[in-house]
């Protein structure tokens, strides 16, 4: 479905991704995991063509998203959906209009057909009956489910999830994770999930990619990842504060800083 070749992205001097190669397979849930600052959100934004890579290619069904024209991209977008970290519902519209948004914008369908489709999508995420609520009246978990329904509105082939469980209580997080897994299987769509939630990630993934500081350090099925030999992988899965991924990110020696040794770069 998506093939990524030597993908790099730098922000100013800082490299967020170093020549990453990966594949997203059809009808599977691919989970990209990593700590904060590992480059996983940057990677997702480039998979969804929200951001242009510094170098490398993102092949989506034969189209290179790195150099695609806006018009073609917008045609491809009909086949993509995205659930954002903060749901990103349009706060001037109620739940119904949010879910129906792409249908209203890009199709000439009759309002009664659109109403049926919206009802079906809301039923899938268990929020039928909330059509007239405004986004500000929804809890975080409900907003995320509405965002999910909105992403499904055009029956996309692929849906991107940015931190679908972060900021939610365990039950809501569990509901979302289950929804992603079930709907991916039922509708034969492809899902790409970015998360730092190890538990949810292992639960829903068919394939896991583990990022650390802009590089892929491990990939494979959840079982392969669980039994991975790399110390850094085990540290991440267990959530140990110190290990091969150091707790301290300081680049100078502690004793030098305490003694105010000359030649040490210090930010004033």
């Amino acid at each position: 479905m998506i093939r990524v070749e030597k993908l790099s992205r730098t922000f100013g001097e800082v490299a967020a991704l170093n020549a990453v190669d990966l594949q997203v397979r059809k009808h599977q849930t691919t989970v990209i995991m990593g700590g904060s600052g590992s480059g996983k959100t940057t990677l997702l934004r480039m998979l969804a063509a929200l951001d242009k890579p510094s170098s490398g290619h993102v092949w989506f069904d034969g189209h290179d998203l790195a150099s695609i024209r806006r018009k073609e991209l917008y045609e491809l977008r009909a086949r993509m959906g995205m659930v954002f970290q903060y749901s990103a519902l349009l706060n001037s519209l109620n739940v119904y209009d949010n879910v129906a948004f792409t249908l209203h914008e890009h199709t000439q369908l009759d309002e009664s057909i659109i109403r049926t489709m919206v009802t079906m999508k809301l039923e899938q995420v268990g929020l039928r009956g909330f059509e007239s609520f405004m986004p500000s009246e929804l809890s975080g978990g409900m907003a995320k489910r509405v965002a999910f329904a909105r992403a499904l509105a055009m029956d996309p082939e692929i849906v991107f999830f940015d931190e679908p469980t972060s900021g939610l209580d365990p039950i809501s997080a569990g509901v979302i994770a289950t929804l992603i897994k079930d709907l991916t299987q039922k509708t034969h769509m492809t899902s790409v999930v970015v998360t730092h939630d190890v538990h949810a990630g292992l639960q829903i993934a068919d394939y896991i990619i583990l990022l650390w500081q802009g590089d892929i350090i491990a990939e494979g099925t959840p079982d392969e990842i669980r039994q991975h030999a790399d110390e850094r992988v085990q540290q991440f899965l267990e959530g140990r504060p110190d290990g091969p991924i150091p707790f301290s990110r300081s680049k100078t020696a502690y004793i030098d800083d305490l003694l105010h040794k000359p030649g040490v770069v210090r930010i004033l």
Partner: peptide, 10 residues
């Protein structure tokens, strides 16, 4: 992220 959401919805 509503601006990105619009972008994603073409």
């Amino acid at each position: 992220e509503q601006v990105d959401a619009l972008e994603m919805m073409a």
